[in-house]
C-alpha cells in the first residue's frame, strides 16, 4: 500500500483558560484531544460531529492556523508541526481550506480578481499581471462563474457564488489537500447540492483529496469515502462509509444514524434519543467521554479510557464494548 497523503498521530490542541494571577493557565479546553487518522491520496475523509466537538479546530490545527499542542502531522512525508514559518509558507500551497461562512471568508474591500490574484502572486504562479489575470479568469470558469465577474466585489454575489469564489481561491494554488470546513452548511439546500457537485467535479478533474468537515450526515454520506465520527475532541469511530451507515458500532454513531431521516415512510425507525448535554470540553468526563449519555454504560466506562480497536481492517472504534479485555463487563 502506498504512503498516505496525510497522516495525523495523536493530535492534541488545548486552549488555556482562566489565566489567574498565581495560577497560570493550568486549566485547558481540550478542543482536540488525541486524534489519529490518515487520508489517502484521492479520497475524501468526512468528519462529522455535533457543534463544539472540535471538528473545525482539528481542521485548522492540521493547517497550523491554530498551533497544535501535541502530536504529529505528516503531509507528503514532511512533518508539519515542526516546520519553521518560511517552510510552512511554501507548504501552504499544498494544503488549502474552504471556510464555512462565505460572507465572512471574503475581504469586502477586495475585488474577486484581487482575492484570487493574491493567492496566485503569493506562490509566484503566473509571472506577469496579464498572465495572472488569465489564470484568474480560468479559475472563475472552473468553479462555474463568469470571467466578467473579475472586477466585482463580494457583496455583489449571492452565498453560493461567494462559496464558489472561496473554492476558487483554495484551488488557485494547485493544492493536493483541501480541508473543507462545513463548506455548505451556511447555504440554501438547493445551492448546497450544486456546491457539493462542484467539489466532486473538481476532485475528479484536479485529483484533489478532501477532508470534509460537516455536521449534516446526508452531506457527508454524499461526498465521503470514509467517515470519522467525532465526539468531544476525539474520533470515536472511523470507518468506510458503507459500513458506517449500515452497521454503526459506537453507541454515539448509532444515535447519530438513527436521526437520519429516511425517504421510505414504511421503515419504522428505532430512534435513539440522547439525553443530557454534551459535557464541557474544559472538564471532560473521566474514562470514556461519552459514558454520561451512553445507554450501554458499565462501570468500566467511567474509569478507563477506551482504546482504539480495529474491529475489521480499516475500521476503528473507541469503545469498551468491542474490546476483548472488557468483554466480561458487557455480558
Amino acid at each position: 500500500m502506498n504512503q498516505p497523503l496525510l497522516s495525523v498521530k495523536n493530535l492534541k490542541t488545548h486552549f488555556p483558560i482562566k489565566k489567574k494571577l498565581f495560577n497560570n493557565g493550568t486549566h485547558f479546553i481540550k478542543a482536540v484531544d488525541g486524534i489519529s487518522f490518515h487520508v489517502n491520496k484521492g479520497e475524501t475523509l468526512g468528519i462529522v460531529g455535533e457543534s463544539g466537538c472540535g471538528k473545525s479546530t482539528m481542521g485548522r490545527s492540521i493547517l497550523r492556523l491554530i498551533e497544535p499542542t501535541e502530536g504529529s502531522i505528516m503531509f507528503e512525508g514532511i512533518e508539519v508541526t515542526t516546520l519553521n514559518q518560511t517552510d510552512l509558507r511554501k507548504l501552504r500551497s499544498k494544503m488549502q481550506i474552504v471556510f464555512q461562512d462565505p460572507y465572512a471568508s471574503l475581504n469586502p474591500k477586495m475585488t474577486v480578481g484581487a482575492i484570487l490574484g493574491e493567492a496566485l502572486s503569493t506562490h509566484q504562479l503566473g509571472k506577469s499581471a496579464k498572465e495572472r489575470k488569465k489564470k484568474v479568469e480560468n479559475l472563475l470558469l472552473k468553479v462555474g462563474l463568469s470571467p466578467t465577474h473579475i472586477g466585482r466585489y463580494p457583496h455583489e454575489f449571492s452565498g453560493g457564488q461567494r462559496q464558489r469564489i472561496g473554492i476558487a481561491r483554495a484551488i488557485a494554488v494547485n493544492p493536493a489537500l483541501i480541508i473543507a470546513d462545513e463548506p455548505v452548511s451556511a447555504l440554501d439546500v438547493s445551492v448546497q447540492a450544486q456546491v457539493l457537485n462542484l467539489f466532486q467535479d473538481l476532485k475528479e478533474t484536479l485529483g484533489l483529496t478532501y477532508i470534509f468537515i460537516a455536521h449534516d450526515l446526508s452531506v457527508v454520506r454524499h461526498v465521503s469515502d470514509r467517515i470519522g465520527v467525532m465526539y468531544l475532541g476525539k474520533i470515536v469511530e472511523l470507518s468506510d462509509k458503507k459500513q458506517l451507515f449500515q452497521n454503526p458500532l459506537h453507541p454515539y454513531t448509532q444515535a447519530l444514524m438513527s436521526a437520519v431521516p429516511s425517504l421510505d415512510p414504511d421503515i419504522k425507525k428505532n430512534r435513539i434519543i440522547l439525553t443530557g448535554d454534551v459535557p464541557s470540553a474544559s472538564n471532560p468526563p473521566t474514562g470514556c467521554a461519552f459514558h454520561t449519555r451512553c445507554k450501554f454504560r458499565k462501570n468500566v466506562c467511567e474509569s478507563v479510557n477506551p482504546r482504539e480497536i480495529e474491529v475489521i481492517p480499516g475500521r476503528f472504534v473507541n469503545c469498551h464494548m468491542y474490546d476483548h479485555e472488557f468483554r466480561e463487563d458487557f455480558k
Binding site: L65, I97, Q100, M110, A114
Partner: peptide
C-alpha cells in the same frame, strides 16, 4: 475568516496588514 484564509495561503504578515486589515 478572510484573514485566516490569507494566512492559510501563506500571505506575509505585512501584506495581510496592508491589504486585509488596514482597508
Amino acid at each position: 475568516e478572510y484573514v485566516e484564509a490569507a494566512r492559510a495561503l501563506g500571505v506575509k504578515n505585512w501584506r495581510i496588514i496592508g491589504k486585509h486589515i488596514l482597508p
